[in-house]
Design a protein around this nucleic acid. Structure first.
Lengths: 161, 161
DNA sequence: TCGAATTAGATGACGCGTAAACTAAACTCG
DNA sequence: CGAGTTTAGTTTACGCGTCATCTAATTCGA
């Protein structure tokens, strides 16, 4: 690295253009760090974050759900859910069941293997949640939630203007 | 990113397993909402968020940067940057310049078109930053930054254990 | 009843993040 | 000098989000 020595100090931008931008970047970076850590955990169990979320939704519901129901509850948009379910099915975590009354509908059900994988992740997930935020006091966590939800509430109003 | 992420929240179970999990989810959802809005803006100008970030880095530096320098400053991991630069080059926003002293190095430089596109985005970007967080008082914004940075600081310590 | 609209879901194309393997140029050190 | 190593960057492969388009089943309206 012949020349990168002096470039390094320039790397840190000291001045933000606005406080709002600073917040946006802080949220973005914090989210990235969280995602990385959870994705790493899920990968140890052969799952991606999206796949884990789908399994969680199915377990939470306690019964099979139509594919579009699942898509609705994730950030995933409709076309993406198909392949996601494909891979979960291929891995044996879920199975598709065609609805008899309305043959357009396809139910997705957790398999026993899916339930086992999910169960084995429960403790590590809770532990990771606690670990990544261990330095914040409960009062700070509550304040964080409050501020973030206030921000989001403002955004959803704004989108209807 | 989905267009309908926020209506779904009503459907969410009200009971969280832990306060930490609630924070994680709040960060996640807020980030999603921010991403959606900015991505939408960038797309109007023919850019993705990643592409915009690269252009911003180049402008911020004020001079051409080696590809790996750019990758280092984004969340993008090395192999992903190649295609990203490819597309930016194809769209005429940047150009590649091989370094003469070290022929392994390829500099990426903003073109005039890239500068123009970036300039035309400046006002809308600032406006959107202000808009999405308009409901939060400056003291709240500062507190949000403080809490998020505290969380991230804890995470980066934890990762070295 | 027949044709139009609607709905569930799949498909294909593209952008991007991630990991692994690879090429080419430069460096190191005996 | 020459073999091994490091470094810059690309390629390939896969998962996923997004969009546009498609098919098949259902429903609705004249």
């Amino acid at each position: 690295m012949s020349r990168s020595g002096l470039q390094k100090e320039l790397k840190k931008k000291s001045a933000f253009e606005s406080l709002e931008q600073e917040v946006t970047l802080a949220i973005l970076r914090t989210n990235d760090q969280l995602q990385i850590r959870f994705a790493r955990l899920f990968r140890e169990f052969g799952l991606t974050t999206s796949q884990y979320n789908v399994l969680r939704i199915l377990r939470g519901e306690g019964k099979p759900l139509p594919i579009l129901e699942i898509a609705e509850r994730t950030v995933t948009v409709v076309p993406g859910i198909t392949g996601l379910i494909d891979r979960l099915e291929q891995a044996g975590h879920v199975k598709r069941e065609r609805c008899l009354e309305d043959r357009r509908v396809i139910y997705v059900a957790l398999t026993d293997q899916g339930k086992r994988t999910l169960a084995s992740l429960d403790k590590p997930v809770v532990a990771l949640h606690a670990k990544v935020l261990a330095r914040l006091a409960p009062s700070e966590l509550k304040e964080l939630v409050r501020l973030l939800e206030k921000a989001r509430a403002a955004m959803s109003e704004e989108s209807a203007d």
